[in-house]
Amino acid sequence: MTNPRNPQAVNGRPFDAVLCDLDGVIRFYDMTELTRMEQAAGLAEGTTAKVALAPGNDLPVLRGEHTVEQWIEAIASELAARVPAERARELATMFTRTPFRADENVVEMLRLAQAHVPVVLVTNATLDVEDDLALLGLAYFADDVVNSARIGVVKPDARIYEIAAERAGVPMDRCLFVDDRAENVEAAVALGMTGVVYGAIADLEEALAPLLALATP
């Protein structure tokens, strides 16, 4: 956990807001069926994801410039150079509909934090993320959701962090930022936030411990 300014606690709190990534921290995907389809098509595991997440394909949808259907078309068009067009579209569609789940332990940790400070989700996601949160039972979980597709800015652009801090209603140097990608955390730290690169729930537990200790008699 890093913060270059290391601000002193205010009113006993080490920070006044938790800004948290969604994918890779709260939400996780089951790639089993997509992997099976890739193997059946003679493709290496992860091929579809590599195509889908290439900047030219994913940035337009993450900035809200393209719909998920347009994303599917872009993925399928590229895959069609390797497999029949029908199979390419099946793979692209499956990628965008991969089953997912929420890590309930992470959600519970964030709920505990929410008793003290606002929790804002900060995610590079599609225009469907609100529906996805509803499917996870988290439609009303966060105090706010900063979705790149709604604001047209993706992490690690500084503006998305500024918007998140504004939504939380606290200065940036009073925010804890949690993300599974180091470059996103580094960008937050450069703006004065306390940053945590998430690899396992122990990372979140350690970061939140000083805050949650306030509830201990």
Results as ranks from 00 to 15, higher is better:
Thr123Arg: 02
Glu206Tyr: 01
Gly152Glu: 11
Ile163Pro: 01
Leu208Ala: 01
Asp16His: 02
Asn3Cys: 10
Glu186Gly: 06
Leu176Glu: 09
Gly152Val: 02
Glu183Leu: 11
Ala88Asn: 11
Gly56Leu: 11
Asp30Gln: 01
Val106Pro: 06
Glu104Ile: 12
Ala76Cys: 12
Phe15Thr: 03
His66Arg: 15
Leu53Gln: 11
Phe95His: 14
Lys155Asn: 03
Arg159Asp: 06
Val197Trp: 05
Gly195Met: 06
Thr35Met: 13
Asn184Lys: 03
Thr216Ser: 13
Ala125Tyr: 00
Leu138Gln: 03
Leu212Arg: 02
Ile75Gly: 12
Gly195Phe: 01
Leu214Phe: 00
Arg5Leu: 12
Val83Cys: 09
Ala92Arg: 09
Val83Ser: 04
Gln70Thr: 11
Arg150Tyr: 04
Ala134Cys: 11
Ile151Glu: 01
Asp180Gly: 08
Val170Phe: 04
Asp58His: 07
Arg5Cys: 09
Leu133Gln: 02
Val185Cys: 08
Val178Trp: 07
Asn124Leu: 00
Gly56Tyr: 04
Val10Lys: 07
Thr93Ala: 13
Val185Thr: 03
Met31Lys: 10
Leu136Ser: 02
Asn57Met: 14
Ala190Glu: 13
Gln70His: 12
Gln70Asn: 10
Val107His: 08
Arg97Val: 10
Thr47Tyr: 05
Glu86Thr: 14
Ala164Arg: 08
